[in-house]
Amino acid sequence: MPSFDIVSKTDMPELNNALDGVRREVTQRYDFKGSKCEITLEDELITILADDDLKLKQMHELLKVHTTRRNIDPAALDFGKEEAASGNMVRQVVTLKQGIDRELAKKITTAVKQSKLKVQAAVQGDEVRITGKKRDDLQGAMSMIKELNLDQPLQYENFRD
């Protein structure tokens, strides 16, 4: 029986490469000369430290541009609240959206059931498995899920015939 899995993963080596690109660009750009802006990654948390709000916004743009260049969807970045740091600096924590949570999985399964396609959806941990009798039904389910415009990037893996 044909099936595929819907997952939400971020390629961590590519993310490291994107962050290296941001660091390189910060050291080379004229508007960042003499500033103490830095960006670090710990587990699934990116910490941005900037001199002021303007530089923080520029770091956001750099992060989005470099992740897009590395084929990482910027929607996977969840920007947290800005907070004051020592030395009149600004800190912001960016969380990576990994895995499909219960609410999103429930939303996907109900959308699949309401679509009247001849497929079944089952939640398996932090992923959703779609099974059906025909490959065409599975491809229809993929396109229907893409049209939902969810706020989290999804990948379709493990397509089996």
Rank of each mutant, 00 (worst) to 15 (best):
residue 1 M to I: 01
residue 2 P to T: 00
residue 3 S to E: 13
residue 7 V to T: 14
residue 8 S to R: 09
residue 9 K to F: 09
residue 9 K to C: 03
residue 10 T to A: 10
residue 14 E to V: 11
residue 14 E to Y: 12
residue 15 L to A: 07
residue 15 L to V: 09
residue 16 N to D: 15
residue 17 N to S: 14
residue 18 A to D: 08
residue 19 L to P: 03
residue 20 D to A: 11
residue 20 D to Y: 02
residue 21 G to Q: 12
residue 21 G to T: 06
residue 23 R to A: 14
residue 24 R to H: 13
residue 25 E to Y: 04
residue 25 E to T: 05
residue 26 V to F: 03
residue 27 T to K: 12
residue 27 T to G: 03
residue 31 D to C: 04
residue 33 K to S: 11
residue 34 G to C: 07
residue 35 S to D: 08
residue 35 S to K: 13
residue 35 S to Y: 06
residue 36 K to E: 15
residue 37 C to S: 15
residue 39 I to A: 06
residue 39 I to L: 10
residue 41 L to A: 05
residue 43 D to P: 05
residue 47 T to S: 10
residue 48 I to M: 15
residue 49 L to S: 13
residue 49 L to C: 07
residue 49 L to H: 12
residue 52 D to R: 11
residue 54 L to A: 11
residue 59 M to E: 04
residue 60 H to I: 08
residue 64 K to L: 10
residue 65 V to G: 09
residue 66 H to Y: 15
residue 67 T to Y: 02
residue 67 T to V: 15
residue 69 R to L: 14
residue 73 D to Q: 03
residue 73 D to E: 09
residue 74 P to Q: 04
residue 75 A to C: 06
residue 79 F to W: 12
residue 84 A to Q: 12
residue 86 S to M: 10
residue 88 N to G: 12
residue 89 M to H: 13
residue 92 Q to L: 13
residue 94 V to S: 01
residue 95 T to V: 08
residue 97 K to T: 13
residue 98 Q to H: 06
residue 98 Q to G: 01
residue 100 I to A: 01
residue 100 I to F: 00
residue 101 D to S: 02
residue 103 E to I: 12
residue 103 E to L: 13
residue 104 L to F: 00
residue 106 K to V: 00
residue 107 K to C: 00
residue 107 K to G: 00
residue 110 T to Q: 11
residue 111 A to V: 05
residue 112 V to F: 03
residue 115 S to C: 05
residue 117 L to V: 08
residue 119 V to T: 12
residue 122 A to W: 01
residue 124 Q to P: 00
residue 125 G to E: 04
residue 126 D to R: 08
residue 126 D to T: 11
residue 126 D to Y: 00
residue 128 V to P: 01
residue 128 V to W: 01
residue 128 V to Y: 01
residue 131 T to L: 09
residue 131 T to W: 09
residue 131 T to Y: 08
residue 133 K to R: 14
residue 133 K to L: 10
residue 135 R to C: 06
residue 135 R to S: 11
residue 146 K to H: 07
residue 147 E to N: 11
residue 148 L to Q: 07
residue 149 N to S: 10
residue 149 N to M: 04
residue 149 N to A: 09
residue 151 D to M: 00
residue 154 L to F: 06
residue 154 L to V: 05
residue 156 Y to D: 03
residue 157 E to D: 10
residue 159 F to I: 14
residue 159 F to W: 15
residue 160 R to I: 14
residue 161 D to Y: 04
residue 161 D to V: 04
residue 161 D to H: 02
